[in-house]
Computed example of a mutant assay.
Amino acid sequence: MAANATAVPQAYQAYTSAAVPDWLNKGDNAWQMTSATLVGLQSVPGLVILYGSIVKKKWAVNSAFMALYAFAAVVICWVIWAYKMSFGEKLLPFWGKAGPALGQKFLIKQAALPATVHHFHNGTVETAMATPYYPMASMVWFQCVFAAITVILLAGSLLGRMNIKAWMMFVPLWLTFSYTVGAFSLWGGGFLFHWGVIDYSGGYVIHLSSGIAGITAAYWVSALVF
């Protein structure tokens, strides 16, 4: 029995494999990815099927594709520039510096959030940087699915109202100039974050922003059409 107990492959031994950094917790990382998957499933296929089934037949494909396209487009925009605008170094009190989140060195290092550490006037740290026990790749993907579902929730206000070509331009623009502002301000170390505003479940960054944007977009699209 003693011999069998020690015959565990090195890759499965905690903190003994050269390929596994000491800070990585496999359980934390697995749950982070599971959570991201569950959120992603609400979008694709969840809202894709829902949107295609609640409108008239002539709008079904257009409505379903609006959700599918939004998810795919957000993934591309997110890793090229939007992640760091939401969670990167501060450019403005409400916006981070744009940049790619694709480099191997960046993605395999330990996750750290927010990137901008806030200090009191005397130089002491007011809000320390959180360093969870999983890599930046998991953090980037986890935050990406929330950005994607926010835009798709917004799409629900425009079903049967917007041409798919207009929607294809709208998605990257709204992600860049609206979602990233809210995400950085509240989650990424922006001014609301340092004022102590707490948004654990995305009530402001996701639900409020998509709701207000949906009402506004529906109003203006209807006004332009009619």
Rank of each mutant, 00 (worst) to 15 (best):
Y179H: 11
L47R: 01
A70Y: 05
G203C: 05
A183M: 07
T6M: 09
Q104R: 13
Y179M: 07
P100L: 10
A128R: 11
T116W: 01
A98S: 14
Y83K: 00
I149N: 03
C144V: 11
A70I: 05
A82T: 11
K105I: 04
W81P: 02
W167A: 10
L38N: 12
P135V: 11
G88R: 04
T216L: 14
K26M: 13
T216W: 10
S209G: 03
L113A: 10
A14P: 06
F142I: 06
V117E: 15
A30E: 07
V79F: 11
W78I: 05
G52M: 01
I212R: 02
V20S: 12
V181H: 01
Y69H: 14
A7I: 04
P45F: 05
Y179F: 12
L38Y: 11
S63I: 04
N122K: 06
Q13G: 06
Y219D: 08
A115S: 15
A147W: 00
A18C: 02
G27E: 12
D199L: 05
N62G: 08
V125D: 13
I215P: 00
K90S: 14
M33W: 08
S210K: 00
T6G: 05
V125A: 13
Y133G: 13
V74Q: 06
A213P: 00
V221S: 10
V61H: 07
T34E: 09
H118Y: 13
V145K: 00
S63G: 10
W174L: 09
W23D: 09
A112S: 15
V197K: 05
T124L: 10
T127A: 11
F146M: 06
G182V: 04
I108A: 06
Q143E: 14
S53F: 07
L224A: 15
F87P: 02
V197T: 13
T34K: 04
H121F: 11
V74M: 03
V225K: 15
N163T: 14
V8D: 10
F106E: 12
G203P: 03
S201R: 02
N163P: 04
G196P: 05
V55P: 03
F170M: 11
W81M: 10
W23I: 06
Y83P: 05
L154D: 00
I108P: 01
M66V: 07
W81V: 09
A2W: 08
E89G: 09
D199A: 06
T216Y: 08
G40Y: 01
A98V: 08
A223Y: 12
S138Q: 04
K84M: 10
A115P: 03
